[in-house]
Write a protein that binds this DNA or RNA. Structure first.
Lengths: 130, 130
DNA sequence: GTTAAAGCTTACGTCAACGTAAACTTACGT
DNA sequence: ACGTAAGTTTACGTTGACGTAAGCTTTAAC
């Protein structure tokens, strides 16, 4: 592990993904490792992006959606027009995520109630069987 | 709309899904409409379950996962063994959902910061261009 | 010098969750 | 009587996100 650049195997170990997955993400332009001849060398930037990709996936975003989110993280070196567009996109995405979070919270509460109800029934049965 | 039983078209309209989807869910044993000859008639129970199915999908659960969650909602008429198993399943699912909610909250905060940062840059540019 | 490990490309396979088309069968309105 | 609208089954097609296998090169180790 040369601190800065990592081989594909090292990446696989660190992030628990297959080499196929990394090549696939490169083909989809989600990451862009350097080349030493044929071989891929993954930079710090690639690792940061991969982290975000995997998190995005856990949230149920498609790779295409994630690609757009990733662009949003590249704000620094953009033109103003592009920034405004990106900013707008971020707003929408944020609203969607907040909505999802709210709904998720609600469902969690319902599930909690359901479990509590199950508990009650179990308790009743235990009492009545003594 | 006979209040109690609904045709497939009525279901499609009410839940904004296709007939194919409803038949597909029946094949997967997520819903089980009555039959009047060949034709399906959807009950209140089917509608309640479909609601949960669609919500589950929004959370990114697979249909198989949703099927298990649905069984959880059928606690009432189960044996104790089955209930314990189901209860356990509910606990796991709840933990997973809470973890997801936490992670989501974190991501939302990061996104918010990112947007704030973008705003700052925009503001700076506006000032420096005057 | 050659074998093994790690890498590469190309390309077909797979699985979930439906879409879509074909070829019927009632049920209803005129 | 007849079209047409709503329903059905059967079955092949599609998209996203990779898995998997074949065949070739490069580097490290013995």
């Amino acid at each position: 592990m040369s601190e800065e650049l990592m081989t594909i195997r090292e990446m696989c170990a660190e992030f628990d993904v297959t080499a196929r997955t990394l090549r696939f993400y490169e083909a989809k332009e989600l990451i862009s490792p350097l080349r030493e001849g044929q071989k891929r060398l993954f930079t710090k930037r690639d690792r940061a992006r991969l982290k975000l990709i995997l998190r995005g996936k856990r949230f149920g975003f498609s790779l295409e959606e994630i690609r757009q989110l990733l662009n949003m993280y590249d704000l620094g070196d953009q033109q103003q027009t592009q920034m405004l567009r990106t900013y707008e996109l971020a707003q929408n995405r944020l609203a969607a995520m907040e909505a999802q979070a709210a709904e998720l919270a609600e469902a969690i509460q319902e599930l909690r109630d359901q479990i509590e109800w199950g508990k009650t029934i179990l308790a009743d049965r235990n009492i009545s069987s003594e």
